[in-house]
Amino acid sequence: MTPVLEVGGIETFYGQSQVLFGVSLRVRPGEVLTLLGRNGAGKTTTLKSIMGLVQPRSGHIRYRGREIAGLPPHKISRRGIGYVPEDRIIFPDLTVWENLDVARRPPRRSVSEGVRWTEERVFDLFPQLRPLALRLGGTLSGGEQQMLAIARTLMGNPEFLLLDEPSEGLAPLVVQMLLEQLRKLKQTGLTILLSEQNLEFATRLSDRACVIVNGQIRYDGSMQELVANETLRRAFLAV
């Protein structure tokens, strides 16, 4: 199967310090691929490189067969890639509805009528946001902000989602809820690249995993195999 997204040997730097050393990964249509790794391993940097928020110095990034490395973030977004950052970055002095509105984008032609996102559909997926529509983004709880961050990105009708540690810092009950909502999203056919440290969360959502260690991919295979293999887990993850 041809991958939706193909990252090949990217090297990314912050100033002089190199963070990614030839990261490669392929995401297949309709799957959830989890990028696992300890703190500081380079998960966020990988997602930001794909989104064009940091520019890799070398390597290629192909989305649906076309090179996107070097494009500005808004063009990458308009190709159909949605990004939900680790720190959520809700616009604090915009209301929940306004946060959704600024992200509204007409769907690309490839998106069929049935899966177009509107406020209504977003509120159906995240019912807890509906009564908060007129509240300022800055007044939401962490869980509500995470849901709004995902909902907001959906308003751009992405076909591919970059999700950076959505479960981070959330209460177990909220994580549970989020998991269900993300599963529903997966069922709509959305392809997801998920960055996680929470192995349990990742297992319940995804089929394949890549493990990143100090800016290099050290495992690329099935989720089950990774979970089953304790030496592998011990070697690469803090679990």
């Binding site: 989104m51 928020l53 500005p72 973030p73 808004h74 977004s77 308009r78 990004y83 950052p85 970055i89 616009f91 604090p92 002095d93 915009l94 306004e98 946060n99 509105d101 600024v102 992200a103 984008r105 907001r152 990105t153 308003m155 751009g156």
Partner: peptide, 22 residues
């Protein structure tokens, strides 16, 4: 909507760009 975009840009231009705004 233009005003909303401006207010959003005041907080984070990167986030707004990642959401597809020019």
């Amino acid at each position: 909507r233009w005003g909303r975009l401006v207010r959003a840009a005041r907080h984070s231009r990167d986030m707004l760009a990642a959401l597809g705004s020019d």
